[in-house]
Design a protein around this nucleic acid. Structure first.
Lengths: 390, 390
DNA sequence: GTGAAAGCGCTAACAA
DNA sequence: TTGTTAGCGCTTTCAC
């Protein structure tokens, strides 16, 4: 009697093992072709029979998966995966199978799920770029170059704009971390010691490079000394004795390095250096230009914190009939493209943006490869480009 | 005898049930604190004991998961998930538990995995933006506005730059589909009927809006007629009889609509309209400007396909001492910001970019909500902004 | 050369 | 109020 019990029990046990939903599904999936509603009804039937969780079964998603391919070809998901991941694995797949799988993938319009892959691999091959804005020439160029550079290294770039708000910057950061980017390029400066995210990233040795600033992580910045010195020398050569410097005050971190470099150079050369401040908008610069014309006692040359503001300043001077470079000499900073075609074209202290981007991406990639990489701070020299405005 | 067999078998069966790796892991995980290497060794031990797959266990990932929180608080993953997803669900969690969970999440620096969530929800709350470039004023403004708009609707924007290459555009598209974006904003024009991706998206009724073009999906474009007509009227009022139109030839689709609108308007008004072509770079426009000065028989006013090229053209004219607007009148198209501060400031036919972006995001969101939404084609009127260049 | 199955982190239906 | 469990789509180890 017990023997019978035993046998029945064994049978049931076997059954229950082989009735594991995943296994049933595999079997059934292999039987039918890729018609979503058949899949749907089958799952539903299984669900009714075995009380399977129906959650997202209810919303039929049309995306094709490796299972659909497997079913069509008559192999298992594993085989399909091996074929599609390039098969660099030691496991070999027969050419017949491989071709069938590839064909099926094409026929069914298969797009591998990035998320599934990210989940299992723990890597996303995506970098994040935290940036204040992307609609000004300098930053859009930066973003553009960064995306290009990342792509050339086999990564994607996830751009995240902070609109220069500290709060938003931390949000962006959270977002990037939730998205599990492999590394981050920082082109803003809110993240500083003491902020929770900062400490976390520091502690995790998270692959980060700071671009244009330096507040604790590896950084890549412009060295303003050579450029500013060339500018001062150039202006001195032209007979200027008093040099103005226009700072857009919201970007203190940006402006200060430049200002300090200029002041040092002026001091060295015995030139007067006068700092003027305005808001970091082109309209403010324009206003500053207009105001400048009202004083008879103004510097004969002004270096402006950015090309963008320089163009505003020139415009403001022009509004008051003070022309550049005859009435006053203007030099911008950054070396953006729009200084080339402006009238007058802009003499500028150019940053090597491409090289900065390249170096910072490289730092991040190195840190991805090895989190123990020591901190690096790279300075990239600026240089004067002489055009018409000074 | 068989009874003993039976009992042993039952025991073994029970054991095997309770030794399901996931269950063991849960139990053990709840016992220890969040120390990655302990986790690692435990898994490894289990692995040795039960021959568990060690795959990614080998690369200890430091990311904190809901399991870590659950373990710390002493509840299950499900509870944690309920707390963290906002608990809008009917299930209620005691305040004690909730607080403990939230605290633990903060203490452990928990960042929910976007990918895991995307996988299970089938939604990413991410839109893709396919765009040709982001370093020119018009497109960087477009990208910027699109990101802002998406964000205000609770979505993120994944920007994907095609560098105006058809091939690259299709790659970008694949990328976005692999990343399972919920919808796509198209600001380029390579995707046309016949292309595999096009047919696929069409068939899937994938949420797409075409911005600036119209090749088969819902679209949002500028209506150039009013703006061009205003421009023609304005120029006519100033006594111009021959109007030139400068097209950057690579953007035929862009240029043609504008040209056709202008030609129609000129015909209506009895004005001559002369089309000049150049490459779509600012340098080419500059060259075109220089060339224009060489002919005595040139139009007295030129409308340029974009502000960007207009600035190049003005610069080219300026190089040859033909000044704007005295020597020749120039009108740009697009209404980008840098026309405001240029010298002379640029008269332009402005697009309402913000509204275009808003409408197209809305279309995409509507299609996400309901794929059966019929196709929509929205035209947004342009208008003349008079400044100094004409 | 291919199949079986576990696991990545999370959600949600159902059970208790 | 909380726990249990299946499943999202994919990779990879192990076994045959």
């Amino acid at each position: 009697m017990s023997t019978i019990f035993f046998l029945i029990y064994m049978f049931l046990n076997m059954l229950s093992t082989y009735l594991k939903p995943e296994i049933i599904r595999n079997r059934i999936n292999n039987t039918f072709d890729n018609i979503a509603y058949i899949r749907y009804y089958i799952r539903k039937l299984i669900g009714q029979a075995k009380s399977i969780n129906l959650q997202s079964t209810l919303s039929i998603d049309m995306a094709v998966t490796i299972r659909d391919i497997a079913r069509r070809v008559g192999v298992t998901k594993a085989t399909v995966s091996l074929v599609l991941t390039g098969g660099k694995s030691s496991v070999r797949i027969s050419d017949t199978t491989r071709n069938k799988v590839l064909e099926a993938a094409k026929a069914l319009n298969y797009f591998p799920s990035f998320h599934a892959r990210a989940l299992v691999k723990g890597r996303t091959f995506t970098l994040g770029l935290v940036i204040g804005e992307i609609h000004s020439p300098y930053y859009s160029e930066l973003a553009s170059l960064a995306m290009e550079e990342a792509e050339s290294q086999g990564y994607h770039m996830l751009v995240s704009v902070t609109r220069w708000s500290v709060e938003k910057e931390l949000e962006c950061l959270d977002m990037l971390l939730r998205r599990r980017v492999d590394g981050i390029l920082f082109a803003t400066a809110a993240l500083r010691p003491g902020v929770r995210q900062f400490d976390y990233l520091q502690e995790q040795k998270f692959p980060i490079a700071h671009l244009g600033f330096s507040t604790g992580f590896s950084s890549v910045r412009s060295d303003w000394e050579p450029g500013m010195d060339q500018a001062a020398e150039y202006l001195q050569g032209k007979g200027h004795r008093r040099i103005g410097f226009l700072v857009g005050s919201d970007f203190e971190l940006v402006g200060d390095e430049r200002r300090i470099a200029l002041e040092a150079s002026c001091a060295k050369r015995g030139l007067a250096c006068e700092v003027v401040r305005c808001s970091p908008t082109i309209e403010a610069a324009r206003l500053a230009g207009a105001q400048m014309t009202r004083s008879n006692d103004r510097p004969s040359a002004v270096i402006v914190q950015s090309d963008h503001l320089a163009i505003g300043l020139i415009r403001g001077l022009h509004d008051q009939a003070v022309h550049v470079p005859d009435g006053i000499s203007i030099i911008g900073c950054d070396g953006t493209r729009d200084g080339e075609s402006s009238i007058p074209s802009l003499t500028t202290i150019a940053q090597d943006l491409r090289r900065q981007v390249r170096e910072s991406v490289e730092i991040v990639l190195q840190m991805i490869a090895n989190r123990e990489m020591p901190r690096k701070d790279i300075l990239i020299p600026t240089k004067l480009i002489v055009r018409d405005s000074a």
